[in-house]
C-alpha cells in the first residue's frame, strides 16, 4: 500500500475564489448543482453534495471574512464505507474513500451515516457520489485538481504525516503572531473518526463553518446496537411463547 495521502486546507489563506470548485467540476465531470443566490453570503453552492465535491463557505463576521473550502474528510473510520451494503465504497491504496459508480445500487444508506453530511445521492442518476480525492489523478502520479488549481496554497496535498507536521508548525507560527484562535480540525488520530485524511486549519469554532464540532463514526456503537437488538429479539420470542402458552380452546 502506498503512503496515506490527504489534504490540509489552511483556511487562513483562502481568498474564496472557488477555483477549487471549478477545477473539481471540470476534471471530474460533475454536473451542474444549480447556481442559487442564497442571500446570506457569496456562497452559491450551499453545501457539499452529490454534485458539489468542494464547497467554499463564506462566513461574514465583524471586521473579517472567514472563507473555507470544505471537502470529504476521507475518514480513518469512515461510516459511509462501513455501512455500504454492496462494497461500492472502498478504501484505496492511498487510504482514501471512493465510491465505485458501477457497483453502487443507490440504497442511500451512506447518506445519513456520514457524520459530516458529505455524501449524497443524485436523484436523476440514483447513485451516491462524493469527492474521490481525484483517485484517477493520484494513480497517474498527479495531485488532485482542487489543490492544483488553488492559487494561494490554501489547499495542500501530500502524504498525511507530512501535512500534519506542516500544519502543527503553521499553527505555532500563527499563535506566535497573535492569531491565537487558530486551531486544527480533524488532524487528531484520537478523535471520533480516528482522524481525517482531509483536515483543516480554522479560525473559529467548526460549527461556524458548518462542520460538526465533535463527530463520531456511528459504527463505533454498532456492537452495543446489536446487543440491544438481540435483547429485543429475545423479548419478542419470549412474548410469542407466553401468548401461545395458554390452553387450547
Amino acid at each position: 500500500m502506498a503512503e496515506r495521502m490527504g489534504f490540509f486546507t489552511d483556511t487562513t489563506v483562502c481568498i474564496g475564489c472557488k477555483a477549487c470548485e471549478v477545477a473539481c467540476k471540470e476534471w471530474n465531470d460533475v454536473p451542474d448543482d444549480g447556481f442559487v443566490f442564497r442571500a446570506t453570503s457569496y456562497d452559491n453552492t450551499g453545501a457539499l453534495g452529490a454534485s458539489t465535491w468542494r464547497h467554499v463557505a463564506f462566513v461574514e463576521q465583524d471586521g473579517r471574512w472567514l472563507m473555507s473550502s470544505d471537502v470529504c474528510k476521507h475518514c480513518t473510520h469512515a461510516a459511509c464505507l462501513d455501512v455500504c451494503p454492496t462494497g461500492a465504497l472502498f478504501r484505496t491504496e492511498f487510504d482514501t474513500v471512493v465510491v465505485q459508480a458501477d457497483v453502487c445500487n443507490g440504497c442511500g444508506y451512506c447518506v445519513p451515516a456520514c457524520p459530516y453530511g458529505v455524501i449524497d445521492r443524485r436523484e436523476d442518476d440514483g447513485r451516491a457520489w462524493k469527492c474521490t480525492l481525484c483517485y484517477d489523478r493520484l494513480r497517474g502520479g498527479m495531485e488532485p485538481a482542487c489543490a492544483k488549481a488553488c492559487p494561494t496554497k490554501s489547499i495542500q496535498f501530500g502524504p498525511l504525516d507530512e501535512l500534519r507536521q506542516r500544519a502543527e508548525e503553521r499553527v505555532e507560527r500563527l499563535h506566535a503572531e497573535g492569531t491565537t484562535e487558530a486551531r486544527l480540525y480533524g488532524a487528531d488520530p484520537d478523535n471520533g473518526v480516528g482522524g481525517t485524511g482531509a483536515f483543516f486549519l480554522l479560525l473559529d469554532e467548526p460549527e461556524t463553518y458548518g462542520l460538526p464540532p465533535d463527530p463520531v463514526v456511528t459504527t463505533r456503537d454498532l456492537p452495543a446496537m446489536w446487543r440491544w437488538a438481540g435483547g429485543a429479539a429475545l423479548a419478542l420470542a419470549a412474548g410469542v411463547a407466553v401468548c401461545f402458552a395458554g390452553r387450547k380452546p
Binding site: 455501512v83 454492496t86 462494497g87 457497483v103 445500487n105 444508506y109
Partner: peptide, 22 residues
Amino acid sequence: ELGRPMRFLNMLRVFKLTSPMS
C-alpha cells in the same frame, strides 16, 4: 426504494457485519 432497482442483487454481492443493510 433503491436508486438503481435493477441492481438490487448487488446487496448479496458481499456480507458485511458492519452494515446493518447488508
